[in-house]
Design a protein around this nucleic acid. Structure first.
Lengths: 237, 237
DNA sequence: CCGGATCCGAATCGATACTG
DNA sequence: CAGTATCGATTCGGATCCGG
């Protein structure tokens, strides 16, 4: 033990010892959306081996990042501690940073409800939203569907795919617009494609409702612009 | 290949694929201070195996985070690309976050010039500094010595141990105060100890100059308060 | 079904030695 | 100085299995 530490007395080092192991930060990402059962996490991280999931949960608990909470009606959930929740701005910033280098989705890449929720939170611009009237979107990407409500400069996102998880109240009424995208929604979030262009290219489809609202959507949610991957590559053997 | 990817189309996932491998973020941390030679990095990360260092540098270059720059007078340095430099606020935030869980230093823990420089940048409070007159500190911790100058709400830090690295100009004149601490300087940065208390306990020693300046130092640099590690522990088998 | 534990081959990491 | 080569020690990934 302790052989796998970095041997430095530094906050960065301590932080990566707490959340730097493989899969750890993705568990944190999903828990930022809400408390999750073991099985929820396994579904949200389809490629994680179960032994790794339980090992990480144990380590994150020992680090005081995650807490294990028994539920009244049998079962149990994992949730972030207050200390773990302090990672939210960091994870959102990493999401924005990484988005600049997302190329085309691989054939096996998936989008989960939690990852899309975090992505939208990362892309949300409260100042832009404050200047615009309320809007109520239903977003479908891959096989997840999200209800996204922007009101009074605030954002609330609820999953529509499964039964509402532990703490959520299901949204009521109908959305103003239902839009379906492939995994290419990021091309709109990055500003690479205007909503109109995305619809013309078939990247986005308006299932029902007011297509004009999508311009407002694109103003409310925006990721940093993408970087051509070709720029700094070629390492040379 | 691609077997070791996370299989998700998400900014967070992309980010940890770029900088989530072991040691990678510590390399970024050191490069945030300035361009570094291979050997500098090896010294600043004493426990990194050399094959891992070269593998990480290669990966970081392929990811467009790091660039390899030949020097005019023979030799070469690694430096962050503009994209890599965008990690600065994230690394500083991680430094603050992790600092809350740094316990006592282990017997083999070291403090390097670069890690201490990043720590001070992370702890720097420009708004507090703006309200105070300029100050010029020399800080010695472990076997590193740093010249820390606060002026007009700005911060500049230069190492005094080795020859000034690549881009640096050596500071001129004498500091207002020279203070020597063990690795326990973080107990002052965290506010756990006032400078006076730290001196009384022998955690800090004023080598020369105006000890009164240390109060100003403690106001200018502050980490989030520490968390009792006992709070959320005990995982239970 | 939920919440894991166990086993094993494959890939990675760590330490040291060596080289242009 | 700037790495590569090698090899044992860990860890990861995938699958299976198990108690409630």
């Amino acid at each position: 033990m302790a052989a796998r530490t970095y041997g430095q007395y530094c906050g960065v080092t301590t932080a990566v010892e707490l959340i730097g192991e493989r899969w750890a930060l993705l568990i944190v990402r999903d828990l930022l959306v809400g408390p999750r059962r073991y099985t929820d996490l396994k579904q949200g991280l389809p490629r994680i081996p179960t032994n790794i999931l339980s090992a990480r949960l144990k380590e994150l608990q020992e680090g005081g990042v995650v807490r294990r909470v028994p539920l009244m009606n049998c079962g149990l959930v994992y949730e972030l501690t207050p200390y773990g929740r302090e990672l939210e701005p960091i994870v959102l910033a990493l999401c924005r940073w990484g988005s600049a280098r997302m190329g085309e989705p691989g054939p096996d890449d998936v989008v989960t409800a939690d990852s899309l929720t975090v992505t939208l939170r990362a892309a949300f611009r409260p100042d832009a939203a404050a200047g615009l009237p309320a809007a109520d979107y239903e977003l479908r990407a891959g096989d997840v569907a999200l209800r996204v409500q922007v009101k009074d400069g605030g954002l609330s996102i609820a999953p529509l795919t499964a039964v509402a998880p532990v703490g959520g109240r299901p949204p009521s009424g109908d959305p103003d617009v239902i839009v379906s995208t492939g995994l290419g929604i990021h091309r709109v979030l990055s500003g690479e494609l205007s909503p109109g262009a995305a619809i013309d290219l078939g990247v986005m489809t308006v299932v029902s409702g007011d297509a004009g609202l999508l311009e407002r959507f694109a103003e409310t949610f925006r990721m940093p612009s993408r970087i051509r991957p070709g720029a700094g590559a070629s390492v040379g053997s």
